[in-house]
Structures are given as structure tokens and as C-alpha cells.
């Protein structure tokens, strides 16, 4: 297959940035999208140009490093996958693919397609944990958690922190990300003690990072590689209201 790429190139945080066109020849449908970019990059290096920078690591959809806007969709076409799981068989010979970094003021572009998502870590720091000190805890089976509760907590805990929810949201809202953690710990008995403070602090931090607010378009749910449901956002809202009383 032959693919034309329109890639966002930006030297560093201060650079304006622009689209640059590249052609990828000899693309195999079995290639992953990132492998296709690897091949383009090898070509660029050989020509003495700087390769396209993008975050990636595990390439099996779990580390959450990769993420780019591909033809206007976070992580590209398809549901329930991260960029690294996208394969070229999802495209056709002769296609033009536009690749942009996640866009959000809370995710400043570092270079090309790499963005800074440390705002997520700062939100987690504001309470995305239970204060269980090493060693001072009861036996695992001393805390009984019925399977449906454990399962629902797991659904929320599956978040990989990739930022696709923010990227896809018309408001750059981080509600799905925040709700996943709040919901997980609100469901589990272990999270009860800090329930009130957690939701308040995490939302305050989310606002401080200048993420937008949720307008319930559910674009986040549609693009989440782990298909985390917006019912967790409902739970987050409920937790937040309840925390006021």
C-alpha cells in the first residue's frame, strides 16, 4: 500500500508547528500503525532529517504512552484500541492520513506528536490512592468484595491514562480519567475512609490543570481504548455532590 501522511511537526514547546507531508511506500497491511511510522522515520534519518517524535513503549495497548489524533479520531479509527494496536489493514491503498498530537492546554506539545501528560499525575497525587502504608494492612480475605463490585471496580481501574478522553472531548475534559479512579475507590471498601476528601481534591486539581468540564457528549467513552463507561462519570458527580453534605 502507498499512504500519504500529513504529520504535525513541532520542534519544541515554543515552536509554532506546521504540517509536513510524507509518503510511505510499501506499507504492509500487517504492519501496526507505529511500525509504519518507524519505517517513515528510518527513511527520514537516512536523509539526515529528524524523525517524527512520538511517545510509545509497550506497543500492546497497556502502558498508555502512545496516543495521537489520526484522521480526527483519538487513537485512529476503531473502538477499544490504543494507537499501537491500530493496524494498517484499517486503511486503504492511496489514503491520506492526518496525524496530530493530543490538543489540550493541559497537555502542552513537547515535540511533534509528544505531549506532556503530567497533569494526570498531579491529579492522581491529589488523592488517587488509599493511604495504606506498607505492611500495616489486614489479610486480603479479611476484606470481602462481592464479584459484581470487584468487576465494576476493575472496569474503572482498567484506565491506562493515555489521555484519549481529553483529546477526543470537545471540551478537553478529563472527567473520564478522574472518574475512573474516583469510581474504583468509591466502589471498594478500602476507599471509603478518604472518599470525601478524595473526590474534592481530585476535582479541584483537575480544574487547576485547566481541563474543560464535561458536557456529556460521551466522545471520551467512544474513544477510550479500555472502553471505560461514562457511568463512572455519573458516579463521580454523585460522589462530588454527596461529599458536600
Amino acid at each position: 500500500m502507498k499512504i500519504t501522511l500529513k504529520v504535525w511537526r513541532q520542534k519544541d514547546q515554543n515552536d509554532e508547528g506546521r504540517f509536513v507531508e510524507y509518503t510511505a511506500d510499501h506499507v504492509s497491511p500487517d504492519m501496526s500503525f507505529l511500525e509504519m511510522l518507524d519505517v517513515v522515520n528510518i527513511g527520514l534519518v537516512k536523509k539526515g532529517e529528524t524523525p517524527v517524535a512520538f511517545d510509545h513503549d509497550c506497543r500492546e495497548g497497556i502502558c498508555g504512552s502512545c496516543g495521537m489524533m489520526i484522521n480526527g479520531r483519538a487513537h485512529g479509527p476503531g473502538r477499544g484500541i490504543a494507537t499501537c494496536q491500530l493496524h494498517m489493514r484499517s486503511f486503504r491503498d492511496g489514503d491520506t492520513i492526518v496525524i496530530e498530537p493530543w490538543r489540550s492546554n493541559a497537555f502542552p506539545v513537547l515535540k511533534d506528536l509528544m505531549v506532556d501528560r503530567t497533569s494526570f499525575d498531579r491529579i492522581m497525587q491529589a488523592g488517587g490512592y488509599t493511604s495504606a502504608k506498607t505492611g500495616g494492612v489486614p489479610d486480603g480475605n479479611a476484606i470481602l468484595i462481592p464479584k459484581p463490585v470487584a468487576d465494576e471496580a476493575f472496569d474503572a481501574a482498567a484506565c491506562i491514562g493515555c489521555g484519549a478522553c481529553v483529546a477526543a472531548c470537545p471540551n478537553s475534559s478529563a472527567m473520564l480519567f478522574v472518574s475512573a479512579k474516583v469510581s474504583q475507590l468509591a466502589l471498594l471498601p478500602q476507599g471509603q475512609a478518604e472518599r470525601t476528601a478524595r473526590v474534592q481534591r481530585m476535582i479541584a486539581q483537575m480544574d487547576e490543570e485547566k481541563f474543560g468540564s464535561c458536557s456529556n457528549t460521551y466522545a471520551c467513552e467512544a474513544e477510550c481504548p479500555k472502553q471505560i463507561s461514562v457511568t463512572h462519570i455519573a458516579r463521580l458527580n454523585r460522589e462530588f455532590v454527596a461529599s458536600q453534605f
Partner: peptide, 29 residues
């Protein structure tokens, strides 16, 4: 809310296929 949400995006996308993920009424509030 509208103004803050607008600001939160910063630079706009060149291609943005929100239509593939959301309903029309939710996009045009």
C-alpha cells in the same frame, strides 16, 4: 462553561471527527 471549555482546547485540530463519536444534539448545545 462554554468559554472555559473553548479555552481548554487551545490549538484546534485540523481534522476533528467528533461526528463519528457523538450525537448531533450534544454537539450543538
Amino acid at each position: 462553561i462554554w468559554w472555559q471549555n473553548r479555552k481548554a482546547r487551545g490549538k484546534r485540530y485540523d481534522v476533528y471527527r467528533l461526528d463519528e463519536n457523538t450525537t448531533l444534539p450534544s454537539r450543538m448545545m
